[in-house]
Design a protein around this nucleic acid. Sequence first.
DNA 1: AACAACCTCAACCGCATCAGA
DNA 2: GTCTGATGCGGTTGAGGTTGT
Length: 221
Amino acid sequence: MAPMLFDDSLKREAKPSLKTSMNMITTKKEVNKGAWTAEEDRKLAEVIAAHGPKRWKTIAIKAGLNRCGKSCRLRWMNYLRPNIKRGNISDQEEDLILRLHKLLGNRWSLIAGRLPGRTDNEIKNYWNSHLSKKINQKEKQSGGSTREATVNNPKAERIVAEKVNVQIVNEENNNTSTSTGGEDSNIGFNVDEFFDFSNEDPLNLEWMSKFLSSDEGFSVE
DNA sequence: AACAACCTCAACCGCATCAGA
DNA sequence: GTCTGATGCGGTTGAGGTTGT
């Protein structure tokens, strides 16, 4: 299926930058860089529709794009993929990002995994341009530090990351099942509830509060 | 109107990890 | 076990847009 392409919501017209233009002039044989054109997007989407989103180097060649595979992958993941949600981050999403960041730190791909339709790049950008400032302001106002629970606690950080990974893998495995999913027999807690912050489930809060209140401790063995 | 400062976000880069030979 | 290519991730850059003076 063709993804939603070239719609009016796309903020930026794909224009080659000055740098890119210079590249095109001076380095004919080198790969194309810079902004993607609508034509490139179309070609890429066609090839991916036919062959699937893998073997990016081959895709780049098949599409006749003078791009590296990496660039094609990035373009697909952040822009052309179906179900990409565009537009403003909602308050709920923002809240979730804040909470997940507190737990995970800059694990953007993991955080994005909990926000359907959002890309890691988008969340990273949103964090850098909006949320980091908000947090700095809060810190200044409160005078204290809202130190991340897992910072300086690599063990705890690892455990959280692993839990999130398990959750995402489970979801992928359960995607075709009729189950509402989330039950995880290996780690002994309901992983869906674990991340259902909107419900403020007491179990989540209990678990999280251990993290969020642990400056020194939260011993994980 | 003109310019500077700031903001946003697509895209690149370097590195780490994974998978297959 | 080692090598190599593919893939994924986070940090950073810079073009273009917006806002302030």
